[in-house]
Computed example of a mutant assay.
Amino acid sequence: MSKPPKPTVANYREFKDYPKIVAAVSRILARQRFVAPVDLFVEMGLLMPTDLERWKRGQVPVLERVIRCNLTKAGRILRLLRFHAHDLNLKPSLTVYRHRSHSLRFSRSGEPKIEEAYATHLVVVGKRNAGDKPQPPT
């Protein structure tokens, strides 16, 4: 059994999760000027808001424990999000998630690149919202 291909610049739009990610990002950006990966997982129904709050309060040791998909799919979603954010010209901004005196963990492995992928917010650059079409001059 072969592994499915990883999302690349050449193929990321072909993944079945991509249209769901695009729609979820659009809804998030209609409410706020950044996309946090945890917000995307909530918007896609893969993370319950109550579980996210429990994790933020330090009651869940790692976020991946309460995400409702396998880790391969979660990683693929994070990668597809980054490609889509690039298309929208969103700027990556590393965010620190803390509860009291300790940093919150996203992954069981604690691997820095995985932690960074979950912790990176994607921020709208400039005055208009990402996804808005430029208005013609009046």
Rank of each mutant, 00 (worst) to 15 (best):
S2M: 08
S2H: 11
K3P: 13
P5I: 13
K6L: 15
P7Y: 02
T8E: 06
V9I: 14
V9H: 11
N11Q: 04
R13F: 02
R13W: 04
E14I: 09
F15D: 08
K16Q: 11
K16I: 13
D17M: 14
D17N: 12
K20N: 10
A23D: 13
A23T: 14
A24L: 13
V25N: 05
V25M: 13
S26Y: 12
S26P: 09
R27S: 13
A30R: 11
Q32V: 13
Q32T: 13
R33H: 10
L40H: 02
F41H: 09
F41M: 01
F41D: 01
V42I: 06
V42K: 04
V42E: 12
V42L: 00
G45Q: 05
L46A: 01
L46P: 05
L46G: 03
L47A: 05
M48Q: 12
P49H: 11
D51S: 11
E53M: 09
E53H: 03
W55H: 04
K56H: 00
Q59E: 06
V60F: 01
V60H: 01
P61E: 07
P61M: 03
P61T: 00
V62K: 09
L63D: 00
E64W: 01
R65Q: 08
V66M: 06
I67R: 02
R68F: 09
C69K: 02
L71S: 13
G75Q: 02
R76E: 11
I77E: 01
R79P: 00
L80R: 11
H84M: 06
A85T: 12
H86W: 09
H86R: 08
H86V: 15
D87Q: 14
D87H: 14
L88F: 03
L94K: 10
Y97F: 15
R100A: 10
H102Q: 15
S103C: 11
S109C: 09
G110C: 02
E111K: 14
I114T: 05
A117V: 03
Y118M: 04
A119P: 04
A119N: 09
T120D: 03
L122M: 04
L122T: 02
L122F: 06
V124Q: 14
G126W: 02
G126T: 00
K127F: 11
N129F: 09
N129Q: 13
N129C: 10
G131C: 03
D132W: 06
K133E: 09
P134E: 06
P134V: 05
Q135C: 00
P136H: 04
T138G: 04
T138L: 09
T138H: 07
